[in-house]
């Protein structure tokens, strides 16, 4: 890695961040929010879009991609804990859902802060396909979201330029995998589904999904158009 500089990205308001950084943002390290490696010259501040969001390019784009997924998960569990399934769930499931709501909300808020001015806007979600009073419907959706999250982080890792961001993604993805295993075990207790053959191949490697595969799957639940055309490939 060339420059693992910690910068207050939240303070960067200049639309041309590269030019801004060249002017010497190194001195602006004070106010709270942080980090953004400047080793990728093509990192790009996503412009405002009339109708939808653009993730941007480089590591910023990937962080926005993670932020989009965490927004989806956070919105899902926020709805779960308001619903009939949660109200009537047993103690174990209640604990798990309450934990997951907090974990995903923490992830979401973290990415929003990390991205600062580069963060995409709040996504509009549509959970009309999920019956929040029905256990199987909620757990089935939770399984989809958690498995998707793991495959998304695993697939995005190789595109991350900054070792610090890669580590942050690594810290989160294993928690998503812990969630996924627990949800799968609730659906089929005591089985091998927690690490099922539908996800893990003969080499013992979990599946990865591309940006387009993940966002296509997520689009069932996200109504805001997401432009990911600037992400690395």
């Amino acid at each position: 890695m060339k420059n693992d500089l910690i910068k207050p990205q939240g303070l960067v308001k200049d639309a041309n961040r590269r030019k801004f950084l060249q002017k010497g943002s190194l001195s602006i390290a004070a106010a709270g929010l942080f980090m953004v490696g400047c080793n990728d010259d093509e990192d790009y501040m996503p412009p405002m879009m009339e109708d939808g969001v653009m993730l941007g390019s480089g590591d910023i784009g990937i962080l926005n991609y993670a932020y989009a997924l965490e927004q989806l998960e956070a919105a899902f569990y926020a709805t779960v804990i308001q619903g009939g399934y949660f109200a009537n769930a047993n103690a174990e499931e209640k604990q798990i859902m309450a934990d997951l709501e907090k974990h995903e909300r923490a992830h979401k808020e973290f990415f929003k802060a990390a991205l600062g001015a580069s963060a995409i806007a709040d996504l509009e979600v549509d959970f009309s396909a999920i019956d929040f009073d029905d256990r199987m419907s909620v757990l089935g959706a939770a399984k989809t979201f958690e498995d998707l999250g793991v495959a998304a982080y695993n697939g995005a890792g190789k595109f991350i330029q900054d070792a610090g961001y890669l580590l942050i993604a690594g810290k989160i993805v294993s928690v998503e995998a812990r969630h996924a295993a627990a949800i799968r075990d609730l659906l089929n207790p005591g089985s091998t589904d927690f690490a099922g053959d539908d996800l893990i191949d003969a080499n013992g490697l979990e599946r990865t999904l591309s940006f387009s595969e993940v966002l296509s799957a997520a689009s069932t639940y996200v109504t805001t158009p997401i432009d990911f055309s600037q992400l690395p490939s």
Binding site: Y153, N154, G170, V173, A177, R178, A181, F194, G204
Partner: peptide
């Protein structure tokens, strides 16, 4: 490595 890492995390959770 990432694809092994998440499998280990699934084991750990279980």
């Amino acid at each position: 490595a990432l694809s092994i890492h998440s499998v280990e995390a699934r084991h750990a959770s279980m």
